[in-house]
C-alpha cells in the first residue's frame, strides 16, 4: 500500500524534493525567488528554552553561536546592499554576545529590524533591559505564544513558560509595545500544540486579543499562525507519538497552490551562525544550502544574484503550502 510517508519520501529519503516538485508541476508551478527584501539571521542554537516543537533543536546546552566576525560580515552585507529588513532569530538571539551589535548597526543603516523574541529570555541575567533596548531601537518584536491558556503553552514550551510569558508581555506593553498608535510593533506567533494544522489566522487572532485582554490586560498588534514543520524535535515528537504518517498525509492533502506566491523563501535569504546561506530557516536546519551555482556564504552574497533564483525544496515544503500556508509572517493565502 502506498502511504503518505512513502509518497513524500519516495526512494529519495526524507528530505527529497521530488514529491513537492512533482506536486508543483501538477499545477504548472515552479518555485523561484522574487526580489530579496529580508535577510533572516539565525545567530545560533543557544536558547533558554527547549520547546517540544523546535525545528532548530535549540536549547540551553547548545554551543553553536555566531561569532562577532560573522556578525560583521552580515552588517557589511546590509550596508553594501541596503537590505530593507533584518530578521534576527535563533535560539534565543538575545543570548548571543553580538545580538545588540547586530541590532544597533542594522538600525544605523536604516534597516527595519525584527527580533524573534521568546519572551522568557528577558528574565535571564543582564537581560531585564530588553524591552527598553527594543524600544530605543524601534525593533519589531515577534514572540511565540502558542495559546492563550497555560496548559497548552506549558505543554509545548515547558513548565512555567506561560506565566513568565504573560509577565514579559506586560513589561513590553508597559514600554509601549503592542499599544495602539505607539509605533512599537508586538506581534505574537501561534503554532499548534501538537500534530494538527493552525486555525484560520483571523479567527484565532480575535480569540487571542479577546482572551489576553480580558484575562491579563495585554494587547498586541497581529497574530501570525505558523505550521509545525516535520523537522528535528517536532519530527521526533511525530515519530514517538505515532503521528508521522498521519501528519505528513495531512500536509500533502492540504496542499494549496495559492500559497506559492506568498512563500517567505521568495523574498528572503537565510544565513546561519557560520555565515552560510539558505533559502529559509527550515532548509538551514536540514543543511540544505542555496543552489550550488550561487555564492554560499554571506561574505560573497549579492542580492542581484539571489533574486529570481531557483529555490531548493524538500518534503518539508509541504508544511509551508498546507491550508492557508505558513511563513514567518503567518498565513499567506486564503484556504
Amino acid at each position: 500500500m502506498s502511504t503518505a510517508l512513502s509518497v513524500i519520501q519516495g526512494d529519495f529519503g526524507v528530505h527529497s524534493s521530488v514529491a513537492f516538485d512533482e506536486k508543483l508541476a501538477g499545477y504548472g508551478l515552479e518555485l523561484h525567488a522574487a526580489a530579496i527584501d529580508t535577510l533572516q539571521v539565525n545567530v545560533g542554537k543557544l536558547c533558554n528554552q527547549a520547546c517540544k516543537h523546535c525545528h532548530v533543536d535549540a536549547g540551553p546546552a547548545r554551543m553553536e553561536i555566531m561569532t562577532r566576525e560573522t556578525a560583521k560580515q552580515i552588517i557589511e552585507a546590509v550596508r553594501k546592499f541596503r537590505i530593507p529588513t533584518v530578521d534576527i532569530t535563533g535560539g534565543a538571539p538575545e543570548l548571543n554576545p553580538s545580538f545588540r551589535y547586530l541590532v544597533r548597526e542594522s538600525r544605523k543603516l536604516a534597516s527595519h529590524v525584527i527580533v524573534r523574541h521568546n519572551l522568557t529570555v528577558m528574565f535571564g541575567p543582564g537581560l531585564d533591559d530588553l524591552p527598553e533596548f527594543f524600544r530605543e531601537h524601534s525593533v519589531e518584536v515577534a514572540s511565540s505564544l502558542p495559546y492563550f491558556l497555560e496548559h497548552e503553552t506549558d505543554a509545548q514550551r515547558g513548565h512555567g513558560v506561560f506565566e513568565k510569558s504573560i509577565e514579559a508581555l506586560r513589561l513590553l506593553n508597559a514600554v509601549g509595545y503592542g499599544i495602539e498608535n505607539s509605533g512599537l510593533i508586538l506581534n505574537l506567533v501561534y503554532n499548534p500544540v501538537g500534530a494538527f494544522l493552525p486555525p484560520p489566522q483571523e479567527s484565532i487572532e480575535a480569540d487571542f486579543k479577546r482572551e489576553l485582554w480580558s484575562r491579563y490586560g495585554i494587547t498586541f498588534n497581529q497574530l501570525y499562525t505558523i505550521t509545525n514543520m516535520p523537522i528535528k524535535r517536532f519530527l521526533d515528537y511525530l515519530r514517538r507519538s505515532g503521528n508521522e504518517e498521519r501528519y505528513l498525509r495531512k500536509l500533502v492533502e492540504a496542499f494549496n497552490p495559492n500559497t506559492i506566491d506568498g512563500l517567505m523563501c521568495r523574498n528572503l535569504v537565510s544565513v546561519d551562525w557560520t555565515g552560510r546561506l539558505y533559502d529559509c530557516d527550515f532548509n538551514q536546519m536540514l543543511e540544505l544550502g542555496v543552489a550550488p551555482e550561487l555564492p554560499q556564504t554571506i561574505a560573497d552574497f549579492d542580492p542581484v544574484e539571489f533574486a529570481h533564483r531557483r529555490i531548493m525544496t524538500g518534503a518539508h515544503c509541504f508544511g509551508c503550502t498546507a491550508g492557508a500556508g505558513s511563513s514567518c509572517g503567518g498565513a499567506v493565502a486564503a484556504r
Binding site: 495559546y147 501538537g194 494538527f196 486555525p199
Partner: peptide, 12 residues
C-alpha cells in the same frame, strides 16, 4: 476532534 483543534477550539 481534529476539526475542532484546527478551527481554534480548546479542550474546555
Amino acid at each position: 476532534s481534529q476539526s475542532c483543534l484546527e478551527a481554534g477550539s480548546h479542550m474546555e
